[in-house]
Design a protein around this nucleic acid. Structure first.
Lengths: 209, 209
DNA sequence: AAATAATTTAATCAGATGATTAAACAGTAA
DNA sequence: TTACTGTTTAATCATCTGATTAAATTATTT
């Protein structure tokens, strides 16, 4: 029932690191949040940096592993994969809304370290996401660049979580209301993505502005 | 020609604050970057916090004022406004790619302070962006919620800049190459946005899966 | 129980960091 | 020149912060 000390520290560190970032988080705050003594943090994790790396890696796992697994599945087509991906991300992020801004922030200050650490390069080759999408777009007669496709998909899915504080404040919405709005997008985004692909494939044949 | 000391400090502070965030930026680093003595920073700006507030406000201006002005113009229709907006944002952000993650980060740690500071609430009412979009969607027979529309538009426009470090690293692209990719989106996003609206309006009449 | 190992704590250290101070310097007016 | 004002600097302060230490406490083994 009661989680052990190590887990308590990790949970506290995850909360603070993801909401405040590395530099703004004090080891004393983590200790207080975990209800333990400062020295214990160093006893279990040697240093703040080390603890951070661990938390970071786990967040990163959540952020990428699931997506990769979806694309590794040979049984499903791209269209289905898109739905699964959007569903997965929005579901996960509704539980952990701070992860995107944490990852973004980390990427800004630590560009390639993070990518390598999670073994992105190999994973990307393994799942050949790019060629899957490339083939899919080709089949549907679209001349869209796969990069744009991915940027659109992730942008529509992830950006709302990054902008959430601004929107909630600007529109005077409660957290709960905004969450419902984001949940709706699980169904909507795949439809929109589909429409975008069609737009690019029809562009050559029709000319109605 | 030579900018005065105050401007040099502000420029240096802007560079460091936007790339590292508040907590990770040392006043000594700002001083060194500006080529001045640490005490001068406090002589001109009283404190690190005060300097930060100034930089933040200016970044925020860039991020929102332009967008609001575009929507204030009574002469242009919504469709044209979208093109202008995308063009404006991508143009500005290509010059200052770090602003989005700076703003996002600030919003996370300081939710409503930022919104109020820039006078968002009044500005939003003045320009009635929401009702303009709402009306536009209605006219085109779409049942999309205006919030989703805005989230999609901003997501497709801004997200790529947030994800840039990841994409550059993962795809092994040079900064310059990725910038060109993003510049392409000035023309593409309006088309995609259009397709999305059509998708929602056609949904009721057609049933081809 | 005694001994040993694992866990936790209070106290402290060393360095970093935001800010201040007092003095030096430069330009301008009298 | 002298006096005055605004600017810049080196030196210093007080506090914060990550980390260590040595001792105390608890758990485990013999």
């Amino acid at each position: 029932m009661e989680p052990n000390t190590e887990e308590k520290i990790k949970a506290a560190a995850a909360r603070l690191f993801t909401t405040r970032g590395f530099a703004a988080t004090r080891t004393r705050d983590i200790a207080a949040e975990a209800g333990i003594n400062l020295a214990l943090l160093n006893y279990y994790f040697r240093s703040k940096e080390n603890l951070y790396r661990i938390i970071m890696a786990e967040n990163f796992q959540v952020f990428f592993r699931g997506a990769l697994q979806i694309f590794q599945n040979q049984e499903t087509g791209v269209q289905e994969k898109i739905s699964l991906l959007v569903d997965y991300y929005i579901g996960r992020l509704l539980e952990n809304p701070d992860i995107p801004s944490f990852v973004i922030n980390e990427l800004r200050t630590n560009p390639n370290a993070l990518i390598q650490q999670a073994g992105m390069h190999e994973a990307l080759k393994d799942t050949n996401i790019f060629s899957q999408i490339s083939q899919y777009l080709e089949d549907r007669g679209s001349d869209m660049e796969p990069v744009h496709f991915i940027l659109n998909l992730l942008g529509m899915t992830i950006f709302p979580f990054l902008a959430a504080p601004a929107f909630q404040s600007a529109l005077g919405l409660e957290k709960e209301q905004f969450s419902q709005l984001l949940a709706q997008r699980k169904k909507l985004i795949p439809v929109w993505i589909d429409a975008i692909i069609n737009a690019n494939s029809l562009k050559a044949s029709t000319h109605t502005s």
